[in-house]
Simulated assay, not measured.
Amino acid sequence: MTAKTPAPVTLTGRHIRLEPLARTHTAELFQAAGKDEEVFRWLAWAAPQTEPEMATIIEGYLALAGCEPFAVIEAGSGRAVGISCFYDANPGDEWVEIGGTWYARSVWRTAVNTEAKLLLLTHAFEELGMGRVMWKTDIRNERSQNAIKRLGAQYEGTFRRARRRPDGSWRDSVYFSMLIDEWPAAKARLTERLLSGA
């Protein structure tokens, strides 16, 4: 059976909700992370210094072919605190990438990323029928690599001189993946981490 292509959907957990990214999220996302160079350090664009610059970033997500972007909504405040996406799904070969992720610094080292990935992985494996989920990140971004490893993903290799960074230097991209047969153990670990407040 062929897997399904990701489509707009709302995924709800205890700590967060993932809902289709929209232009109406612009003000909250700018308030959450605008001007924060550290949040955007490893992404393909500089930190937005104004709300219109954040709007341009959101337009980029919405216009990107093969991207299904989500706004990450904090349950307690009801406000958008980040973005994460499905990318480049290949239903015939049953794989999809998770990427384009960033969060406001106020929710770093909280349950937000754990639950966002639990929701996305559950949707990918159990509802879309994917057999493989992938991530890639800048070789210099050790925080992201550690977060991906904590999900239970496996290191696959490094794609050298993969693309230019905003400063003009060349980025090596580190690749990770999780397979459907690895998912039950990863799901149990992620669920346990959420129950323990991680």
Rank of each mutant, 00 (worst) to 15 (best):
A22Y: 09
A22E: 14
A22F: 07
R23C: 12
R23W: 09
T24H: 09
H25S: 05
H25R: 05
T26D: 08
T26C: 10
A27T: 11
E28L: 06
E28D: 15
Q31S: 15
A32S: 11
A33Y: 00
G34F: 04
K35Y: 09
K35H: 14
K35F: 07
D36K: 06
E38I: 13
E38A: 13
V39P: 00
V39L: 02
V39F: 08
R41A: 13
R41S: 11
R41G: 06
W42K: 06
W42R: 09
W42D: 05
W42H: 15
A44Y: 10
W45D: 15
W45Q: 15
A46I: 11
A47K: 05
P48D: 04
P48S: 07
Q49C: 04
Q49G: 14
T50N: 06
M54S: 06
M54A: 04
A55W: 01
A55D: 08
A55E: 09
T56W: 02
E59T: 12
G60H: 09
Y61F: 15
Y61T: 10
Y61M: 09
L62W: 05
L62Y: 02
L62F: 11
L62D: 10
A63C: 14
A63F: 03
A63W: 00
L64M: 15
L64G: 13
G66R: 07
G66S: 11
G66L: 13
C67F: 06
C67W: 06
C67T: 14
C67L: 11
E68A: 09
E68L: 08
P69N: 12
P69L: 04
P69C: 12
P69V: 04
F70H: 07
A71D: 07
A71L: 08
A71G: 10
V72T: 10
E74P: 00
A75M: 08
A75D: 10
G76I: 11
G76W: 01
G76K: 15
G76T: 14
S77P: 01
R79K: 14
R79C: 09
A80N: 01
G82K: 02
I83F: 00
C85A: 14
C85Y: 04
